[in-house]
Amino acid sequence: MTFRDLERVVGRLLPKAATQSSWWDEAETGADDSPQTRAWQSAGFRPVVDLKSEHVRFERID
């Protein structure tokens, strides 16, 4: 889905930080404490992001 699609789903704009890989990457220091990381992990997913095309795919965590 595009970032715009995701914004429609959540009902608000993504923060400007979403254009940086560190916002999406739970391996970044402290990122596992971010609200967005906790949300998709608790739902059983992880994001796969293409920043250039502003697309994100959520993969189910095994």
Results as ranks from 00 to 15, higher is better:
residue 30 G to I: 09
residue 41 Q to C: 04
residue 49 V to W: 06
residue 52 K to G: 15
residue 29 T to C: 06
residue 40 W to Y: 03
residue 50 D to H: 09
residue 29 T to S: 11
residue 33 D to R: 13
residue 45 F to Y: 04
residue 32 D to S: 13
residue 44 G to Q: 03
residue 53 S to D: 07
residue 48 V to P: 00
residue 47 P to M: 06
residue 49 V to K: 04
residue 39 A to W: 04
residue 31 A to P: 02
residue 34 S to L: 14
residue 48 V to N: 10
residue 38 R to D: 03
residue 30 G to P: 02
residue 28 E to N: 02
residue 51 L to V: 06
residue 38 R to N: 02
residue 32 D to A: 12
residue 34 S to T: 10
residue 44 G to V: 05
residue 34 S to Y: 04
residue 42 S to Y: 03
residue 57 R to D: 08
residue 40 W to P: 03
residue 36 Q to K: 10
residue 52 K to H: 01
residue 37 T to V: 13
residue 37 T to P: 01
residue 42 S to P: 01
residue 41 Q to A: 12
residue 42 S to C: 08
residue 43 A to V: 07
residue 56 V to M: 08
residue 56 V to Q: 04
residue 28 E to S: 11
residue 41 Q to W: 02
residue 57 R to V: 08
residue 31 A to C: 05
residue 32 D to R: 13
residue 45 F to Q: 01
residue 51 L to K: 03
residue 30 G to T: 02
residue 45 F to H: 07
residue 56 V to S: 05
residue 31 A to V: 07
residue 53 S to L: 02
residue 43 A to S: 13
residue 44 G to A: 07
residue 36 Q to S: 13
residue 52 K to T: 14
residue 28 E to Y: 13
residue 34 S to K: 14
residue 40 W to G: 01
residue 31 A to I: 11
residue 46 R to K: 04
residue 52 K to L: 05
residue 33 D to W: 06
residue 40 W to R: 00
residue 31 A to M: 15
residue 57 R to G: 00
residue 28 E to G: 07
residue 41 Q to E: 04
residue 44 G to R: 05
residue 46 R to H: 00
residue 53 S to M: 07
residue 29 T to N: 08
residue 28 E to Q: 14
residue 44 G to C: 02
residue 44 G to N: 02
residue 47 P to I: 04
residue 49 V to A: 11
residue 32 D to G: 01
residue 42 S to A: 15
residue 34 S to G: 03
residue 31 A to L: 14
residue 53 S to V: 14
residue 57 R to F: 12
residue 36 Q to A: 13
residue 45 F to V: 10
residue 45 F to K: 03
